[in-house]
């Protein structure tokens, strides 16, 4: 692992520590005063509380939606490789087609659907996570499919077939274990992409509600402050969002390089 990935990993640990520390101090009622003061939109909330809460939501939905889309992608890719033929071609073409639809458009439509059905100011966190999984499966599916395909060409996979290991078992017991490093790297690279997508959609007001903001929603809700003396109230959120995305990307990138080198 290179120094950039190490630094990224350290940053992620610190960011996670920040959210947990904040939660613990809140529970103990020992929270120090927030240096950035009160949230201008909601005077009874501090900027620190809103931003760290936003960081937590962004982190949570990034990780869960990332894990969800990678799990779905792995399952689909395994099915595709196992069944082959038309099924595999169908998944490949389906992913390609899905890939050409702009993510933001789909999320906006899903947001309208949610509001029409359940009402409320924005969409709920679980709905947002589900939407992000629904739009995020295509790219990792193709990547995992290609990875499995190239792993299946390895000599010891042919050797496993030659001693009569059934195809499903070959995929699960011999091929998949070789793909773990790559899957983890794809997951870590999916997380920042998802956080950015969600931030964009929530910034524009089509995502999470303002009283339960992600980093993107908080920034979108206070975009006017940027040009005023109160810019310090949004600077921490911008900084945390940038740190979060860059840190995930660096760790994922480092792992991907390693996985690629190992082959």
């Amino acid at each position: 692992m290179n120094w950039r990935s190490r630094l990224g990993l350290l940053t992620l640990v610190l960011l996670a520590g920040l959210t947990f520390g904040h939660a613990a101090l809140t529970a103990l009622d020992a929270l120090p005063e927030c240096p950035f003061g009160a949230d201008p939109g909601m005077p009874y909330e501090t900027v620190c509380g809103q931003v760290i809460g936003g960081l937590w939501r962004s982190l949570l939905l990034g990780v869960t939606a990332g894990a969800g889309s990678c799990l779905a992608a792995t399952a689909l890719a395994l099915f595709a490789r196992r069944l082959g033929g038309r099924f595999e071609l169908g998944i490949e073409k389906g992913a390609e087609l899905f890939f050409s639809i702009p993510d933001l458009l789909v999320l906006i439509v899903l947001g309208f659907v949610s509001r029409a059905v359940w009402g409320g100011e924005g969409v709920t966190l679980p709905f947002m996570i589900a939407s992000l999984v629904a739009i995020g499966w295509a790219a990792p599916t193709r990547m995992v499919q290609n990875r499995l395909r190239s792993l299946e060409r390895l000599d010891f996979i042919t050797a496993a077939h030659a001693i009569g290991v059934p195809r499903t078992r070959v995929l699960l017991r011999h091929v998949l274990p070789m793909a773990w490093d790559y899957l983890l790297a794809i997951f870590l690279l999916r997380v920042p992409a998802i956080i950015l997508t969600e931030s964009t959609i929530s910034y524009l007001g089509f995502g999470l509600p303002l009283d339960q903001p992600s980093l993107g929603r908080y920034l979108g809700g206070h975009w006017q402050l940027l040009a005023t003396d109160d810019w310090v109230k949004v600077a921490p959120a911008w900084a945390l969002l940038a740190l979060l995305v860059v840190a995930f990307h660096q760790v994922g990138r480092g792992l991907l390089d390693r996985a690629e080198e190992a082959r």
């Binding site: 010891f156 050797a159 059934p166």
Partner: peptide, 28 residues
């Protein structure tokens, strides 16, 4: 069929390959 062949392979007919360095699963 694939199932019939899978049954034969490793049981009635077995095969060894050229490169022993790459023909064993490194994680087993």
């Amino acid at each position: 069929s694939e199932a019939e062949l899978t049954k034969l392979r490793g049981d009635r007919v077995a095969m060894i390959f050229q490169d022993p360095m790459t023909s064993l699963d490194p994680s087993w």
